[in-house]
Design a protein around this nucleic acid. Sequence first.
DNA 1: GATTAATGTG
Length: 798
Amino acid sequence: MHALIKSFSQSHKHWQSLLLFKKLLPISKPQISTFPSILNSCSSLPYLHPGQVNHGYLIKFGVYGSCVDIGNGLLRMYLKLGDFQCAYKVFDEMPMKNNSHAFDCIIHEFSINRMFDDVVAAFEKMVVLCVFPSVHSLCHVIRACSELNSIKRGYFVHGYVRRNGFDNHVHVMNSLISMYSKMGRMDLAQQVFDDVIFKDIVSWNSLITGYAQNQNWSKVFELFLCLQRAENLVPNVVTFLALLSGVGHAGEASTGMSIHGHLISIGLYSDVQLGTAVLNMYAKCERLDYAEIVFKQDLMSKSLVSWNALISAYKQNGYDREAAGIYERMLVEPDMKPDSFSFANVLPVYASLRKIQRVRLIHSMVIKSGLNVENDVVLCTALLDSYGKCSDVKAAESLFFSTHHANTATWNALIAVYILNNKMENGMNLFHQMVGSRVSLDSITVVTLCQLCGQMGSLKHANMFHGFSLFKGFSSHLIVGNALIDMYMRCGCTESAELVFHSMCVKNIVTWNTMIYGYMAVGCSPKGLGLFQQMQSETAYNPDSVTFISLLQGCLSVSATYLELVHAYILKYGLASETQVMNSLIDGFAKIGDLEKARELFMQTDFKKDQSSWNIMIAGYGMNGQGSESSKLFSQMEVNGYAPDAITFTCLLSSCSHCGLIEDGCKFFELMITKYNIQPSIEHWTCIIDMLGRANSLEDAYDVIKTGIYHKCSDSAPLDSITVWGALLSACRFSMNMEVGEVVGKKLSKMESGKVGYYSLLSNLYSSNKKWDEVTEIRKVFGDGKVMKKPGLSSLKS
DNA sequence: GATTAATGTG
C-alpha cells in the first residue's frame, strides 16, 4: 500500500494517493517514508484542508521534525499553497543547520510571489547561520535587491559574492550587472562586466540593456559593435530589443531600417517581441507609415503588447483620433483584453479629445477587469489627469485622495488640473502641502508652478517662486528656464524674462519662441521682430510654425506692413502650407481690419483649411461689423462639408451680438442645439447675454442669469459664473445702465476669486473700448502687478 | 537578460 501511494504521487495521481492514505490510516500507522509523497500530493491540490490534516497526523504520529525530508516537504506544501504563515511556522520549528534546501525553497517561493523583503531577510538569516546559498538563490536575492531599489543591500550581497568566491559564476555576475543597471549605476555595472572572465551572451545583453535603459545610446551602439567582433557569441532577441530601443530614441530611422533588414535575413524577425520593438522603433522615429505596415503585414500573431505599442505610436505622433480608433478596434478583437498599459495609453487620447464619457467608461472597465487603481499609480495618474482635462475636478480629487501611492507625477497632475480649471488657490494650497509631504519635487513641479504664477499674473508670486526654484537648484533645467520666461511674460514683466533668457546657458527653439510670443502678447512687436531676426543671424535654429504663430500674437497693435513682412518670411521658410500658421496670419489681417487680404489668403488653395480656418474668418467678419457676411460664410462652410463645432457658434454668436443681429443670433443658437446637438457652453450664454444687453434688452439678459438657465451648460467651473455676470456688466456699460451695473459689480466682488475676475473683466472692458484712463484708474485700485490674463496657444489650436 | 504606460516648456 505504501508503495502504491508513492507511485500515485509520482505519477501525478494526487487524489488517488490521498484517498489511499485515508483508507490506510485506520488500518495501520503510516511509514515515515510515505509522508513526503503525501505532502507532495497535498501541494499539488488547491485545497489547504488535507495539508493541514496531514500536518496534524505528522505531529500525532510523532514523526514531525524527525526527518529533514518531511520538514522540507511540509514547507514546500505550505509555500505552494500560498499559506506563508504556516510556512513560516514550519520553517521556524525546523532544525536549520545545513538545511540549505529549506532556504532555497522559501527564497524561490518568496521571489515568484514578489515578496522581495522576505527574500533578502531569508538571505540575511542564511549568512548569520553560515548556510551556503545555491547560485539560483543568490540570483533571486540580487534581483530582490534591485526590485527594492536598495543599493545598500545590493552592496552587501555583492560583498558576499566576492568573499565567498561566487564571482566565478557567470549567472551571479550577470544578475549583479542588471541590478546595478536598474539602479542607474552604470559605472558599477560596467565594473562587474569587466570582472567576468568568461562572458556569455547574457552578460553582454545585461550591459547593453542597462545602457539602453539609462539612455546612453552611444554606449549601446559601441557595445553592439564590440559584441559582433567577440568570438563564439551571437547577438540574440534580447540584444536586438535593446539595440532597437536605442535606435528609436536616437531617432535614426535609416539605422533602424538596416537592423530591420538584418533581422529578416538572419531569421529572427518572426519573433513577436522583436516585431513589436521594430514597430515601436519606427514610431519613435516618426515613421508611422512603416509602423503601420509592420503591424498589418509582419506581425502575424499580434500580442496585446503589439496593440498597445501601435496605440502609443499614434498617440506619440499626435494622431489622437487614430489612436482612439485602434483602441476601439482592439476591443472588438477576439481574445484581446485591454490591460493597464492599454488604459494608461488611451486615456490621455480621450482626455485631449475631451471625451468624458469614454474616460468614465474606461474607469468602469478598469474596475471590472479587477485592476486596482489605488495600487497602480500610473493608471491612477492617467485617470486623474483625464478627468481633470474633461473638467471633472471632483473625480480627479477623489482619485488623488483614494490612492495609497501618490508620487511626484500624481501631485503634479492634480496641481495642473487645478490650473486648467481655474482653481488657482487650490493649486497653490496643494503645492504647499506637497512641499511639506514626503514626495519630492521635480522639474515638472516647478514648470507647473510657473504656469500657476503666470496664470495668476501675479508678479509677487512669480518673484517668490523664481527664488524658490533657484534655491532648489531647478533653475538650470532647460524646461524650467523656458517656463520662467513664460511666467514673467504673462506677468507683464519683460525685464525679468529678459534676465532669465540671457542667463540661460542652454537654449532651444522653445526658448526663443517663448520670448517672441511673450513680447508679442504684451504688445512689444518691435522687440519680438528684433529677436526673430537675432535668432536667424545668431543661432542654427530655423523658425518653425510656432515661431510664426508667436509673431502673429496680439496683432491689434501691429501694422499692415508688419503682417506683410511676416508673410514674406513664412513664404521664405516654406511654411505657407501649414494650417495653423495660415490661420494666425488670416486672423492677424482680420484683426487689423484688412478683410480683403484675409479673404484672399483664406481662398488660397495651397494650404489645407480646417475648422478653425472657417471659424477665424467668420469671427473676422463679425469683428469688422459685417455680420451678414459671417452668416453667408457659415452656410458655405456647411455646403463644403465642414461640421461646425462649439467654437464656430461662439464666433457666429459674438458676430451677431457685435453687429446687433439679434434675430440671426437666436436662430443660430437654436440651430446649434437642435441640428448640431451642441450643448451651449458658458461662452455661448455669455454671447446671448451680451447680445441682449447691447440691444437694450437688459431685463431679458438679467432674466437669463436670474432663472439660472445658463447652468444647463456643458462646463461648470465656478469662475464661469463670473464670466456670465461679467457679460451682464459689459451689457450694462453698453446701455449705460449704471444702476444694474453697480448691482452686478457688487455681486461679482463677493464671488470666490471674484475680485480678480471683476478686475480683469472691467479692465478688459475698458481696454477694448480704448478707455485707457479707466484702465489706469483700476490699476491704481488693484495695482499689485496683476495684468490681464492673456489667451495661450491652446485657444488657437482649437 | 527583454518590447508597450501617467504629470511637463512655445
